[in-house]
């Protein structure tokens, strides 16, 4: 992998720099994929909160399985969908450390549905970042729980027929109903405004954990240009239009304590 170097000339102050919580590796993600963007947002948040050395991440199964190559904290690798259970085990041992899971939509809204709902319902003091691109990226573009009605994938070649394959799962709406969740929001990381909002949401979600308020999850509408057969620019537009059209970008639950956090 390519090593990226940032050198600051003598006598100059950096106004924008590489986050300490991000390793200096270039990612393996496809052009136009937003995993790299969201990784960076998490890294910036960990830097700003000063918790990098106190953080343990839980990696999923999916395209972001190698997230520990990019985020510069301790990490464990979960089996498919079980990241919230693993995070629970870690957090119960280390209540004072920051524990987060990073999961794709297949991981969190299909195979791992039970684990995320129960972790949220227990009010587990962990933070979850869920990437929703409506498709299984790593296995080659099959239908995800979040695949839109009529959407063509390699396992719905004539488009998702909901009468046969079931309906798209709106995870955030479901999690918002759990008593233990304090902050459930859906953001979109496909344009500058959305990326800035996503970062703020991630920061709020980590702060909710650090202040011991309860479970927080940020769902991020994303892209998969490779499996959508679109170029990066088209994919960003498609995500905003179609994913955003089906999955409203909004905050579904935010307790008063979370609202009062200074982000």
């Amino acid at each position: 992998m390519t090593l990226i170097k940032t050198e600051i000339p003598e006598g100059m102050e950096p106004i924008y720099s590489y986050p300490e919580s991000l390793t200096r590796l270039s990612t393996h993600y496809c052009p136009g994929c937003v995993h790299g963007i969201v990784h960076r947002l998490i890294a910036e948040v960990l830097d700003e909160l000063g918790v990098r050395e106190n953080t343990i991440g839980v990696a999923p199964v999916g395209c972001s399985v190698l997230i520990y190559n990019y985020i510069n904290t301790d990490f464990v690798g979960a089996s498919h969908g079980r990241a919230p259970a693993m995070a629970t085990g870690i957090k119960r041992i280390y209540p004072d450390k920051v524990v987060f899971t990073y999961q794709g939509d297949g991981d969190i809204a299909a195979i791992g549905t039970a684990e995320i709902i129960h972790a949220a319902n227990r009010g587990e003091l962990i933070t979850t970042v869920a990437i929703n691109n409506a498709i299984y990226g790593m296995t080659g573009g099959q239908m995800a729980p979040t695949t839109l009605p009529g959407m063509v994938t390699t396992s719905t070649p004539t488009g998702r027929d909901c009468a046969v394959a079931g309906y798209p799962v709106k995870l955030s709406e479901i999690l918002a109903q759990t008593a233990g969740a304090v902050y459930i929001t859906r953001e979109s990381a496909t344009d500058i405004v959305g990326i800035r909002k996503t970062k703020k949401a991630i920061k709020r979600a980590f702060l909710a954990q650090i202040h011991g308020l309860g479970f927080a999850c940020v769902e991020v509408l994303a892209t998969c240009p490779t499996n959508w057969n679109l170029d990066p620019w088209e994919a960003m537009q498609w995500s905003r239009e179609h994913l955003g059209g089906f999955y409203p970008v909004e905050t579904f639950k935010m307790t008063d304590e979370v609202k009062a956090l200074k982000v």
Partner: peptide, 15 residues
Amino acid sequence: SEIAAINMVYGAACT
């Protein structure tokens, strides 16, 4: 579930 139980065990064991 036992699936969650063993993964909680796995997480704690990583510490």
